[in-house]
Amino acid sequence: MLVLLDTLNTKERAVFLLKEAFDYEHDEIAKILEISVENSRQLLTRAKKKLKLRKPEITTSSAKDRKYLEKYVNAIRKGDVKTLEQMLSDEVQVLADAGNKLQAIAELTSGIENTIKLMTYVYENHQKDLEIKIEEINHQSALLFYRGTTLINCQIFELSPNGKITSIFSVVDPEKLMKI
């Protein structure tokens, strides 16, 4: 849902949700949004194209991905900026979901330098004393941060075909973490 909200503009989001999630007809959507029926159809087509382009290729994480995340964790622990720079794609982005009850340090961060600053800050100030487990969530590599038996943070990683981190989706919303 975060990717959807981040990828589409306001009208595309509205049309997509009304049509795909709530099964509204285009004439109903047109009335609600005060647009033409044709505009509603065009916005839906555009939204689907954007989402298809954004959709990552789903592959199961491998032992190679696990080793890669181990390297990432070691670099974060050491504050090894050079290694992190090599591991992150130029367009890397971090998206945080804290839900309604918590405030995330940043909802969206992008670029290598900003991502390194954010992730090393979060580790030093919030995760340093937590147990870290490497797992697979929704067919993607993930880091799970535990305080005792309580899951505090789940970071899901999207890797490019050339092995660079393109996205980190960080979930800290306690209600969502209970479902993992």
Rank of each mutant, 00 (worst) to 15 (best):
M1T: 07
M1Y: 08
L2A: 10
V3T: 12
D6W: 05
D6S: 12
T7C: 13
L8K: 02
T10E: 15
T10P: 02
E12T: 05
R13V: 07
A14K: 06
A14Y: 05
L17N: 00
E20L: 00
A21W: 09
A21Y: 13
A21Q: 02
F22W: 07
D23N: 13
D27V: 05
E28G: 04
I29M: 04
I29F: 07
I29R: 00
A30K: 01
A30P: 04
I35T: 08
S36E: 08
S36A: 05
S36M: 04
E38H: 09
E38M: 07
N39L: 11
N39P: 00
R41M: 12
R41I: 13
Q42H: 08
Q42T: 11
L43N: 03
L44G: 06
T45W: 11
R46P: 00
K50H: 14
L51E: 06
E57L: 11
T59Q: 11
S61H: 06
S62T: 15
S62R: 01
A63D: 13
A63H: 05
K67D: 15
K71E: 15
I76E: 02
G79R: 01
G79P: 07
G79M: 06
G79S: 08
V81I: 15
Q86W: 00
Q86F: 06
V92F: 14
V92A: 09
V94T: 11
V94M: 12
A96R: 03
A96I: 01
D97E: 15
N100M: 11
N100F: 14
K101V: 11
Q103V: 14
A106L: 09
E107W: 09
E107M: 08
E107H: 12
E107A: 05
T109Q: 11
S110R: 12
G111F: 10
I112Q: 14
E113D: 15
I116A: 01
I116F: 12
L118S: 01
M119C: 06
M119A: 04
Y121A: 11
Y123R: 00
E124L: 09
N125I: 02
H126W: 12
H126R: 13
D129M: 01
L130R: 01
I132C: 04
I132Y: 01
K133Y: 12
I137D: 13
I137G: 01
N138K: 01
Q140G: 06
S141P: 11
S141A: 15
L143R: 07
R147N: 15
T149W: 00
T150H: 07
L151H: 03
L151A: 03
I152K: 04
N153P: 00
Q155W: 07
L159H: 08
S160E: 13
N162W: 07
G163R: 03
G163T: 03
K164P: 04
K164R: 14
S167K: 14
I168S: 07
V172H: 01
D173M: 05
D173R: 02
D173K: 04
E175I: 01
E175N: 12
L177F: 09
K179L: 12
I180V: 15
